[in-house]
C-alpha cells in the first residue's frame, strides 16, 4: 500500500514540475474585470441582511421555496409541544424516533407515543417504521434555508433521513446568516475537540427530478421536513 502511495505521489510531483500558466484567454476578461482585493466568498454569495428579523424572514422565504414547513413559534417549549402534538394528530403518527437533548426530549416525550432513541444504538427496522424523526440541529442557515445537522447534534446519521417525516426543533439563536458563518460555527465548536463523522446541510425534504425533470418529494429520504423554531 505504501508503494502505491509513493508511486502516485511521485507521478503527481513529476507532473507538477512542468510549468503551467493559468489560461487567460477568457473572452469575458475585458468585460468583467476582476475586482481586486476582495477574496471572501461572503462578498459574492447571496446577500443576507444584518438584523435578526431580516435573517428570520429570509430563512422563512427560502424554506418555503424548498417546500419545507418552517414555523416560528412564540411561547417557548410549551407552545412547541402543542404545535408538534397538532402535527402528530393530523398525520396520525404511531411512533417517533429521537435522541437526547432538551428540546427533543420535551417534544417527543409529550406525544404519548412509543419513542425509539438512537444515541445508544437502535434497531434499523424499528427506526424505519417510525412516523417521524425528531432532531435538534447545529444551526439554521438563512442564506439557503438549510438545516445544519451533524452526527453529534442530531442523533447520528440515519435519524434525520430514514423516517418519512423529519422534524427539526431549534432555538432562534441558532439562525446564522450564511454558509461562511455556518462553517465558522462548526470550526469554533469542533476544530479543537474533533469534528463529528457526519456534517450535513439539509435543504428541504428529499427530492428528485430524475423523471422528466419533474420535482417529486420523498425520493429516498423524508417526504416532509418541518422546522419548529422557538
Amino acid at each position: 500500500m505504501n508503494d502505491q502511495r509513493e508511486q502516485l505521489l511521485t507521478r503527481v510531483r513529476k507532473a507538477l514540475e512542468v510549468p503551467a500558466e493559468k489560461p487567460a484567454g477568457h473572452h469575458d476578461q475585458a468585460s468583467e474585470p476582476r475586482i481586486a482585493g476582495k477574496h471572501a466568498a461572503t462578498e459574492w454569495l447571496p446577500l443576507v441582511g444584518p438584523s435578526f428579523e431580516e435573517r428570520l424572514a429570509l430563512y422563512a422565504k427560502n424554506a418555503k421555496e424548498l417546500t419545507a414547513d418552517f414555523r416560528f413559534i412564540q411561547g417557548g417549549i410549551p407552545a412547541l409541544v402543542a404545535e408538534l402534538q397538532e402535527i402528530a394528530k393530523t398525520e396520525g403518527w404511531t411512533g417517533v424516533a429521537t435522541h437526547a437533548g432538551e428540546l427533543t426530549e420535551a417534544a417527543a416525550g409529550a406525544l404519548g407515543l412509543p419513542v425509539v432513541r438512537t444515541e445508544c444504538g437502535y434497531d434499523v427496522d424499528a427506526l424505519e417504521k417510525c412516523s417521524a424523526g425528531i432532531t435538534a440541529c447545529e444551526a439554521l442557515v438563512a442564506q439557503t434555508g438549510s438545516v445544519l445537522v451533524t452526527s453529534r447534534s442530531s442523533g447520528g446519521r440515519a435519524l434525520s433521513v430514514l423516517p418519512p417525516h423529519h422534524v427539526v426543533v431549534a432555538r432562534r439563536e441558532q439562525i446564522v446568516a450564511d454558509m461562511t458563518e455556518a462553517y465558522a460555527l462548526l470550526a469554533s465548536r469542533y476544530s479543537e475537540s474533533g469534528y463529528p463523522s457526519m456534517i450535513s446541510f439539509i435543504s428541504g425534504p428529499s427530492r428528485t427530478g430524475d423523471i422528466e425533470r419533474i420535482l417529486v418529494l420523498g425520493a429516498h429520504g423524508p417526504k416532509r421536513l418541518t422546522v419548529l423554531c422557538i
Binding site: H99, S151, R157, S200, I202, S203
Partner: peptide, 18 residues
C-alpha cells in the same frame, strides 16, 4: 441541493451509528 454532506471517518466514539 437537498443534501450536502461531509464525512470524516467511520463512526466516532460516542456516535449513534455509522
Amino acid at each position: 441541493t437537498g443534501y450536502n454532506t461531509m464525512y470524516g471517518g467511520p463512526k466516532q466514539p460516542g456516535e449513534a451509528d455509522g
